[in-house]
Design a protein around this nucleic acid. Structure first.
Lengths: 325, 325
DNA sequence: ATGAAAGCGCTAACAA
DNA sequence: TTGTTAGCGCTTTCAT
């Protein structure tokens, strides 16, 4: 490994001072075209890359943001939703010389690490209940944006999908197709995404029986056991709104094993448009990549100290009708 | 935001010098129990976290490793395989005060960034063909471990699953259950994982017709179009070995739409044991989390400069029989 | 076992 | 427009 060149060598080769090199590197004003060009050439010739650590230390910026998955299990990593968000985050980060640091541990460690100045801001997703992490970070002055509305309310900006409206549409589709006994497999009640989709179902079901609710944890297994319990409680159900495609996968397995045909006997509507299933799922589509981009854009703007930013952003959802309902 | 304390303040409060604090922090020897305790207390009292940038700059270590997804599309992010690996990586990283930096861009940027001393090592997964990135990093002296055998061969250590044996078992299961016209949906031929699973199928099929091969790209859509093409070429096929569950999802949709019953008309065996399907997939299971842990362990060992490390590790696979075959 | 002092490679304030 | 200078907060010899 050849020793890598420092900024001094670039300066020497370009015939200018370190400061000028630094200015060119950071796109600062007040640099002559002549100097700029000389520096550029020297950088290329030496294959120079600035030392990030030195940069952070001197510049008081970490040039990195954290993506915090506020869930010890790591369940969310397996969720297609997360994958899409991550793609969006990356896309938005491109060209910002900002690195993405992934974190998954417990609030204690994460909190002190993050507030410790190692990153310039944090994206917190999949936050449950009244997760103290969000307020902790916010109170410490670290720019934070939540992915999904935080239940605690408070002053943390967030980006979310319009889960309520999506759930209403999904349920209405079931109703208007003539289903009479419509159940729902809801998500965790300690997350806004779980609550909002359940509220949407309730809203659309107003006037009808709304006790057919079972809860899952956004895993196929959770969806399967919820479906089993619903089938036991109401064998004659003929429609289910499942609050996540990933849970619908489990539900479909159970329905199949129970000999129920989908959609003939039981119509199924999912949420996310994230998985190919048999039969293809009628579901509520959300643009997860856009979600990730929006999240990142918002955080970067916050870090730059932009004024008048919207406290929160709600992204639209839309029903996609396929075979399952 | 209260200004965060520096090492000097800890030193002052503990009544020792910066050096001693540093020693305690880094678990260095030659520190009295008395001093150690005093420092510990001061650290807690001040809620001190070391500045990572300063540490890297002075210590010539980045205290971070990169997880490089050598694929522009980001397809792999949506792959359950990747999610499992990432969980393993995190698990193994716990307690190593090492951060995980995720990278997805093009070889050019990534290469110079990585060799630029910003991370202490890199995990490269999903590398296609004769990806120059691996050799580039290796030649620059950066510790690297590949996830999945690199096609280029060369001196880069890697961790892989025993894809060949898994594929052989899967295919033998199909054969021994009496299937006569067995096809395969193979993965990309520019990746060892694609090649090895195909070789396993060929090996098990020796003596039989081996032209029923269609290729997919490890996406459900790829699996679907491969299945369509196979069905067209050989309508009477009665078994398929699909080189990835995620592709099997697409294949199952196509079979279902074509009115073929699984497993009655066509038996399907997948690979990965990563998705719940209808009907539940008979598949080759691999322990992806272990894969991630092994990968990380290997890289950390490499970074520590341990001697006599195995150049490569092959993890076992096993057949899980469910309903689809 | 402990402390003093010299950087690590950059940015930013200031001077010119 | 450019250069000089002083740190940023640690780790690490080298003394003691």
């Amino acid at each position: 490994m050849t020793r890598r060149p420092g900024i001094d060598e670039v300066a020497r080769l370009a015939g200018v001072s370190k400061s000028t090199v630094s200015r060119v590197l950071n796109g600062a004003p007040h640099v002559s075209t002549r100097a700029r060009e000389a520096v550029r050439r020297a950088v290329i010739q030496l294959d120079y890359t600035p030392n990030q650590a030195a940069r952070s230390l001197a510049g008081h910026r970490a040039n990195a943001i954290a993506l915090v998955v506020s869930e010890p299990s790591g369940r969310v990593l397996a969720d297609p939703f997360f994958a899409g968000v991550m793609r969006g985050v990356h896309a938005e980060l491109a060209g910002h010389r900002t690195q993405l640091v992934l974190m998954m541990s417990q609030p204690g460690d994460v909190g002190s690490y993050l507030t410790g100045g190692h990153v310039d801001g944090a994206l917190v997703i999949s936050s449950h209940g009244h997760d103290p992490l969000l307020s902790l970070l916010h109170d410490n002055g670290l720019p934070v944006v939540a992915g999904g509305r935080p239940l605690a309310g408070g002053p943390v900006p967030y980006v979310d999908s319009d889960n309520f409206t999506g759930a209403v549409e999904a349920t209405q589709h079931l109703i208007s197709s003539g289903r009479k006994r419509i159940a729902t497999i809801a998500g965790p009640v300690d997350m806004a995404v779980g609550l909002d989709r359940l509220s949407g179902w309730r809203r659309a079901m107003s006037g009808q029986r709304t006790d057919l609710v079972a809860y899952g944890d956004f895993t196929p297994e959770g969806g399967a056991s919820a479906m089993t319990s619903l089938l036991t409680r109401e064998p004659s159900l003929d429609g289910v709104f499942v609050a996540a495609d990933i849970m619908a996968l489990g539900a479909l397995q159970v329905l199949h094993a129970a000999g129920r045909r989908v959609p003939d006997d039981v119509a199924v509507v999912g949420f996310d448009d994230s998985v190919p299933a048999v039969p293809p799922l009628t579901t509520v589509k959300q643009d997860v990549e856009r979600f990730g981009r929006m999240l990142t854009w918002r955080l970067l703007a916050e870090i730059e100290g932009e004024e008048g930013l919207p406290p929160s952003v709600l992204l639209p959802t839309s029903l996609v009708v396929r075979t399952s309902a």
